[in-house]
Design a protein around this nucleic acid. Structure first.
Length: 590
RNA sequence: GGGGCCGUAGUUAAGUCGGUUAUAACGCUGGCCUGUCAAGCCAGAGGGCGCGGGUUCGAGUCCCGUCGGCCCCGCCA
């Protein structure tokens, strides 16, 4: 490079520079060697510009250009000139001009690449992850991370302007028994003891409210040692926020402003808050899931009343056992093939159904394995409840409410996809509120918190805590975007007596509460303000904003589904010396 | 813990009923070529089919195991 300094980025060269000399540095995207003229596309993060080497005007530099190969790192000095008439490239931002190179310095060469640096790639993901630095040279992936930066900046600016302070919380912290599996870090100074990496900064942000900071936020890495999915990595990033002296609607209001700014600054999309809201009961009742995709209809209808006395045993028994009979009606889906129905049945079974009852409404009436069990009156009632007409397909689920809803909710998404009902463009937000406080864990034989143990019950439900605990609703809320949960929060418990009561309900005894959360219970005694907050999954937001299939596409160095890093080969074994210092002995794999 | 899909040149894929020397495109190497931009034309190198067993006269093709990638259920307060 020597004394040369870059004047501007390749992607910034424009007609305004015609006639001036520029110094550019970047990577050789591709060389087109005509024997005489040589063209090289020089690429950097801002784009590409065409370099021209003409043997008649520069024999020596032309000779040198001959050696250039893909991804060589080049520095050039040259004159920006208008491209000859008819050779402009409208595909390129810089396509009206080119740089006639006078001097070339090859700053570095490159071995032949394992794959080409281009956007339309169909290279296997494991290869991409092994050579992530090359993958990240692709403009599309680079663009996603640059967009992520802009959204993070917009987040910091907005929250700062709204009185939030960014305050860091510990990464080495205390393991807590509730929730996801912790990543543990051994303590050398306290042999036999372990830190945990935070699943979220939940307790620390509450304590910051007790300290009187009033409003806190952090763009913070969180860790959960659970199995991975397309939208779940073991380490992920939350936009974490907490506010004092607020209720639910205050938090929602401020956060709608945040989301609006993120989308405006990120991709120039104008959102119009307030976003619609559904209670948990409505969401599950109408869409089957607590993360409803409200971009299309196909809603669930309750037929328990109409069919509880049905001659079809599956229906009548479900009803008599306290379950529900529900259905969805897919318009025009009577043409689904046997194979389609088999696929749908498989989906239903995978989510806990014992089978799938269906009806095709044909010109000849009900075509269905269960038609013979239903009276004409019942058929009529079904059609009316669903608004069904000839050409439609009706699918039933009769089971415990939780199973029936889940099954139909999933079938709804599947059929919505098959029938092309889900819009490809657009961002559809919905708040889901009034979640249940508790659910019963059959495996552990105890109540567990649906949100987390620090979530406040709704005031009007407090007195049901001991009589009907499952009916108690929490001051919790989730933000759902296009059917994905992108954020969730709650108003917290700010009284130590209430917090103790909830721990008790969760089967966390006084003693255990003391060991695990004693510091919080103690802190709550010293003038804790009412407070609440929320956390957004930044990776998920970015994946949706960029139309990515997986959050791996918006994370620079993601892990594979087995939780490994193909680039660095982490995790790995360590030296015996390291283990000895930590007083750790590795057990044999069973 | 479980279900499904996939591993063949550097990359992406084809490979029939098990049968001579495993195909193609892109990339790579060399040559020709002065307006290309997925440059073009010609020539060439490059793999033994993820790995380990087994069946067979013979396995990329069949069987068993194993490793790895992806999707999903469970799990993820």
């Amino acid at each position: 490079m020597g004394e040369w300094r870059r004047g501007l980025y390749c992607g910034q060269v424009s007609s305004g520079h015609i006639g001036s000399e520029v110094t550019l540095m970047g990577w050789a995207q591709r060389r087109r060697d005509h024997g005489g003229l040589i063209f090289i596309d020089l690429r950097d993060r801002e784009g590409m510009v065409q370099l021209v080497f003409n043997p008649e005007t520069g024999k020596e530099v032309h000779e040198k250009a001959h050696e250039v190969r893909s991804e060589f790192v080049l520095a050039v000095k040259g004159m920006v000139q208008k491209r000859p008439e008819g050779t402009e490239n409208p595909e390129l931002k810089t396509g009206l001009v080119e740089v006639a190179v006078k001097e070339l310095r090859v700053l570095n060469d490159s071995a032949p690449l394992p794959f080409m640096i281009e956007d339309e790639t169909d290279v296997a993901e494991n290869t991409r992850l092994k050579y992530r630095y090359l993958d990240l040279r692709r403009p599309s992936l680079q663009g996603k991370l640059i967009l992520r930066h802009r959204v993070a900046m917009a987040t910091r600016n907005y929250l700062s302007e709204n009185g939030f302070f960014e305050i860091e919380t510990p990464v080495l912290t205390k393991s807590t028994p509730e929730g996801a599996r912790d990543f543990l870090v051994p303590s050398r100074l306290s042999p036999g003891s372990f830190f945990a990496l935070p699943q979220s900064p939940q307790l620390f942000k509450q304590i910051l409210m007790i300290s009187g900071f009033d409003r806190y936020f952090q763009i913070v890495r969180c860790f959960r040692d659970e199995d991975l999915r397309a939208d779940r990595q073991p380490e992920f990033t939350q936009i974490d926020a907490e506010m004092s002296f607020v209720d639910r609607d205050d938090v929602i209001g401020v956060m709608e402003g945040l989301v609006t700014v993120m989308f405006r600054e990120g991709i120039g999309v104008g959102l119009k808050p307030p976003f619609p809201r559904l209670t948990y009961a409505e969401a599950v009742g109408r869409f089957g899931l607590d993360n409803p995709d409200v971009r299309f209809g196909l809603e669930l209808k309750d037929l328990t009343g109409a069919l509880s006395g049905s001659g079809f045993k599956v229906f009548s028994e479900a009803a008599s056992k306290g379950g529900v009979i529900k259905a969805i009606c897919a318009k025009g889906a009577a043409e689904f093939s046997r194979k389609d129905l088999d696929d749908l049945t498989e989906v239903a079974v995978s989510f806990g159904a014992k089978g799938l009852a269906w009806v095709k409404l044909t010109s000849g009436g009900w075509q269905s394995p269960i038609a013979k069990f239903l009276s004409d009156g019942e058929k009529k009632a079904v059609e009316e409840a669903l608004g069904a007409a000839e050409g439609d397909l009706i699918l039933f689920a009769a089971d415990r409410a939780s199973i029936a809803n889940t099954v139909l909710g999933r079938l709804r998404l599947n059929i919505g996809g098959r029938l092309g009902l889900i819009p490809e463009e657009g961002f559809s937000f919905v708040w889901v509120t009034e979640f249940p406080m508790l659910e019963y864990d059959e495996a552990d034989k105890r109540y567990v918190a649906v949100h987390h143990p620090f979530t406040s019950p709704m005031d009007e439900d407090m007195d049901r805590l001991d009589t009907e605990p499952l009916k108690v609703r929490a001051k919790a809320y989730d933000l759902v975007l296009n059917g994905s949960e992108i954020g969730g929060g709650s108003i917290r418990i700010h009284r130590s007596d209430v917090q103790s009561r909830i721990f008790d309900k969760l089967g966390i005894g006084a003693e255990e509460a003391e060991t695990r959360f004693g510091f919080l219970l103690e802190a709550l005694k010293y003038g804790t303000p009412p407070h609440g907050g929320i956390a957004f999954g930044l990776d998920r937001v970015m994946a949706i904003m960029t139309g990515s299939e997986s959050i791996r596409d918006v994370i620079a160095f993601p892990k594979t589904q087995k939780g490994t890093c193909l680039l660095s080969n982490a995790p790995s074994t360590v030296d015996q010396k390291q283990l000895d210092e930590l007083f750790i002995r590795v057990a044999k794999k069973v």
